[in-house]
Write a protein that binds this DNA or RNA. Sequence first.
DNA 1: TATTGTTATACTCTATAACTATA
DNA 2: TATAGTTATAGAGTATAACAATA
Lengths: 145, 145
Amino acid sequence: MNGDLSRSPLAHEIEFLAIKLFSMGTRRANDALLSVSLRVRLYSVLALANSDAHPTQRDLAEFLELDPSQIVALVTELENRGLVIREIDPSDRRSKVVTATPRGAKLFEEARAVTGNAESETLSALTSDEQAALLRLLRKAVFGA
Amino acid sequence: MNGDLSRSPLAHEIEFLAIKLFSMGTRRANDALLSVSLRVRLYSVLALANSDAHPTQRDLAEFLELDPSQIVALVTELENRGLVIREIDPSDRRSKVVTATPRGAKLFEEARAVTGNAESETLSALTSDEQAALLRLLRKAVFGA
DNA sequence: TATTGTTATACTCTATAACTATA
DNA sequence: TATAGTTATAGAGTATAACAATA
């Protein structure tokens, strides 16, 4: 090879860089989550089920930008493992609220620790100020504020 | 739902935000690339084949963080469409250098225009200064400098 | 022996349409 | 009629192992 690919125009496209950061991060996070038998998508659903947001499956689909049919499979797996429960929303019997069980909450804390380590590895080239700046910019890009 | 998922702890994890930005961006980019019959991975390979880096398939695999066997399929598709050529490296006959044809170079310029539009949409919440700052931080996180 | 490209295979993720129950 | 969840299916992406040619 005569040139340095990191100097190619492609390597200056923000989306391409986001994909690289994503694939590096996802690989590390999935490897780390092996120890708690989760994968990033299961981890994401468990995290939201464990928050005080009390999301319905539709909420999860919108926030995670996954199709509702994909949420079904993820929630079912977590439910079968006793980590979350589905409860019909009394105010709209079509909707099901997904909530972490105590066991799910406990596993989530373990999972959060290992993904935290993976994140530190992924971002090790940045100072903590830079990491904070990146976080702010990503939040603004994604949520618009 | 009682809470706002964008205030959940998950929504403050950098890797999760990178995944969201990635999935938003990839979806838009893939939609945009439909008009030139490419997808993001084909676009990435074509972009690097069209640079002055003259990468081998092994170089592409490392830079794109894909398995060499995946590169085979991508290069073969581009080759069958007359957009790139494989050439044996005379200095190491095991390696094949991937280079864009004139037709490939032309299609890449079209593709770059449409992905540029998609990127602008994805990042529309950021000012141009913020976009530049995000680019710098992503490059440092990914390439370490 | 080690490396490059290749083939084959299995698994995960993504996208879509059709069905059911509730509203 | 519209929406939430579900089922089924096909296509794209990812991961692994084994092999031939070359170093």
